[in-house]
Design a protein around this nucleic acid. Sequence first.
DNA 1: TATTTATTGATAATGATTCCTATTAACAAT
DNA 2: ATTGTTAATAGGAATCATTATCAATAAATA
Lengths: 140, 140
Amino acid sequence: MQLEQIVMSLRDEGHRITPQRIAIMDYLLHTKDHPSADQVHSVVRKRYPMTSLSTVYKTLDLLREKKLVNEIEVWGEARFDAQVDEHINLVCLNCGNIEDIDEKALKNIQAKIAKKSDYLIIKGSFEMHGYCSKCKTEFQ
Amino acid sequence: MQLEQIVMSLRDEGHRITPQRIAIMDYLLHTKDHPSADQVHSVVRKRYPMTSLSTVYKTLDLLREKKLVNEIEVWGEARFDAQVDEHINLVCLNCGNIEDIDEKALKNIQAKIAKKSDYLIIKGSFEMHGYCSKCKTEFQ
DNA sequence: TATTTATTGATAATGATTCCTATTAACAAT
DNA sequence: ATTGTTAATAGGAATCATTATCAATAAATA
Ligand SMILES: [Mn+2]
Ligand SMILES: [Mn+2]
Ligand SMILES: [Zn+2]
Ligand SMILES: [Zn+2]
């Protein structure tokens, strides 16, 4: 997804385009990190020092509503993922680094569950926890 | 797992067996709910009014360390699951109810990922979010 | 029964997130 | 280009689940 398209679709829906929103969206679109709200704030601040943490939270909310970012929780903290296609997040129990893994078998499982269960399924979230390549030696 | 076995194993490791711990373990072993710490506290209190929330938190921590309960996060709140075998938790987006689904294909996927990735995998957690049978009519 | 010390309970501290509100600024209309 | 409307922002307070602190209590063991 391109920044320009997102900007246009937001404008279409009557949202205003602000430098803060552009800065936040631009960062999310170009990082493979899965940053927390605070990390987003720190990074965006370097270029646009007038951005407040409140605004970061509200912008992330807006982007989540528009399904432009995905939100996952790690250790009681929200982490944001610009990759919105269904995938598996590998979370490092030591450093908190998150890596994406695509696994097509996921879709099959989800479809099966959706049929089997009484629930009206909206979305799935699959995480695996362990130690990343950098950390696993420390914990052998 | 039986209460008696758990009690013995805790005692073996030098932990003291208190009425509070027994009450908490007993409740978790016999419910299919996925209660929050606060819910555990409320329920246990009816039988053992001398149980504090602090103790509930500390006991849940202990049980998690011993891998006797599993912890998942829903809406920034921890929920505890006495079912520790790998399974899928269906979370209702409206009422917060959680239902278990067994899916043997999960193990295959996890094994595959463990090989494919650089991570040393410790555990997986798979959730699906939607509306339960009671709530889905309201949201059509 | 006395001793040891893990556990408890009450409450303060923490920290991520949400709420509040005066001020600012995007943008449509003039 | 200017104005008016009102969405958006900044920043500080409030919220609330969880963790930390520590004096009092009670399991375990001899
Ligand atoms: Mn991801
Ligand atoms: Mn479960
Ligand atoms: Zn790591
Ligand atoms: Zn429901």
